[in-house]
Nucleic acid binder design. Structure first.
Length: 450
DNA sequence: TTTTGAGTTGTTCGA
DNA sequence: GTCGAACAACTCAAA
């Protein structure tokens, strides 16, 4: 008996229940497969593709160079490979995204008779759809979800790292593609399972204790930087949660809540797949939007004249990653100051971010736009200067990414138009007046409210 | 069924 | 400079 283990976004061997299922079903060997699906490759930006390819190379090494990588539509590649090796089953970690669910349905239907697509585990500690209220309906507010999620609990990590699997060969592979062209100077985090575990160990042993205090500070290295590893499954959240269990303290608790946000948004998306592309709260379809391309370009290229916004958007292009606090600030600026459609900003993020995840990204944007799970406070408009002074108190973050402002010392960098000598040469003037833009946003939201 | 309490991440104004 | 209240109701969760 042989089986196929079809990797998707679970590019690791440790704590991998689908791997154990594949091994148990395929006593004579398991064929490790990755399908280069154009439907996923096309919308992913170069940073994400490069990271994916590097994670695949690490995985290939971990399976002794036997990873079969093939381009094409999964519904033709997977059945063909299954037939070629005479597999009696195909194993995956379940995918809960709108595209993945539909794709897996197609693959399932295309497999030869008697060969099941076996879904074991998921990229989440608790699979989307499992956490429910007593009456069986899903939760739409984060805090009650978090409590129910904790009550529900999760399995201990699967001990698959040391499991010996006989990896099959004999199927031709095109191999992992070369990295796409990356923006000059872009440095990506190291990919692969070992790198993920290293990163986690470093965070767990040093920064997690300070996480509650430092996680909001873009000028400090206070966050885990694990988002990209969770995105590609080079580490499973269950592994992190197990490691945290028994740890008291605000830092561990806050980090656990952040992991739960990821699970919450995946759950929301599972129940309402349309929320990937439109407001969860349909009333906001009537919100009056602008579509000024010049303003969008100024935002995307980091020349709005608001230092913290420009620093954030330049970091996005330079590093394919941005601190969450900064994501909120630049998102708020696009939505509330420029009155542009959140979906346009969400798409730009997904294209640029190495960790871009549909559920987390698009629901995060909806939180900022006020049309997602967070019910009401539409009057919450981020002030880019106040946010800068509060979360980048010395101005170090801004100066790191905006060279034109490096001559300005201290927090004065957050409002260069107030400098006695005026703003430094070369730094753009503000494209909008925040106070006026805020009033305009409140007026537009007020109309939708009724 | 009804009622009550609560809700990640904010800003501004006036005392 | 600091602090609390107002923003504006509304929806969701749970008793």
């Amino acid at each position: 008996m042989t089986s196929v283990l079809w990797f998707r976004r679970d590019l690791r061997l440790g704590d991998n229940p689908a791997l154990l299922a594949a091994r148990d079903a395929g006593g004579d060997g398991v064929l490790p497969l990755f399908v280069l699906d154009d439907a996923l490759r096309r919308p992913s930006g170069a940073p994400r593709l490069a990271f994916l390819y590097r994670a695949l190379r690490a995985l290939d090494e971990a399976v002794g160079g036997r990873l079969v990588v093939l381009p094409g539509p999964p519904e033709s590649v997977v059945p063909r490979v299954a037939e070629e090796v005479g597999a009696s089953s195909v194993h995956v970690a379940a995918d809960f995204g709108p595209y993945g669910r539909e794709r897996d349905g197609r693959v399932e239907a295309a497999l030869p008779g008697g060969v099941p697509l076996v879904r074991t585990g998921s990229p989440y500690a608790v699979a989307p759809g499992r956490v429910r209220k007593d009456d069986g309906t899903p939760l739409r507010v984060y805090t009650p979800f978090y409590r129910a999620w904790l009550r529900h609990g999760w399995r201990a990590p699967a001990r698959s790292a040391d499991v010996s699997v006989r990896w099959l060969t004999g199927v031709d592979s095109t191999g992992v593609p070369a990295d796409p062209d990356l923006p000059a100077g872009l440095r990506l985090p190291e990919a692969g399972e070992a790198a993920a575990l290293d990163r986690w160990a470093e965070f767990r042993d040093s920064a997690v204790g300070r996480y509650a205090d430092h996680r909001d500070r873009p000028d400090l290295p206070g966050t885990s930087r694990l988002s990209v590893h969770l995105k590609y499954g080079t580490v499973h959240p269950r592994t992190l949660l197990a490691d945290l269990s028994g740890r008291t303290g605000q830092g561990a608790e806050t980090f656990r809540r952040e992991l739960a946000w990821r699970e919450f948004y995946a759950d929301v998306l599972w129940h309402e797949p349309r929320s990937a592309r439109e407001c969860l709260n349909t009333r906001f379809a009537a919100l009056e939007l602008d579509s000024d391309q010049d303003r969008f370009a100024a935002w995307a290229e980091g020349r709005t004249g608001y230092p913290i916004v420009d620093a954030g958007m330049r970091q996005l292009r330079a590093e394919a990653w941005v601190h969450n606090r900064i994501r909120m600030i630049v998102a708020s600026f696009l939505v509330k100051d420029l009155h542009l459609d959140w979906t346009v900003g969400a798409r730009e993020f997904l294209r640029r971010l190495v960790d871009g995840d549909l559920a987390s990204n698009n629901h995060g944007w909806q939180w900022v736009a006020g049309c997602g799970t967070d019910a009401s406070p539409y009057h919450r408009v981020f002030n880019p200067v106040t946010q800068g002074r509060k979360f980048d108190p010395a101005g170090d973050y801004v100066r790191r990414y905006v060279p034109e402002l490096r001559s300005v010392d201290g927090p004065a960098v957050h409002a260069p138009w107030e400098l006695p000598d005026g703003p430094p040469e070369g730094y753009p003037a503000r494209i909008v007046d925040h106070a006026a833009a805020r009033a305009e946003a409140l007026a537009r939201y007020e109309k939708v409210r009724r």
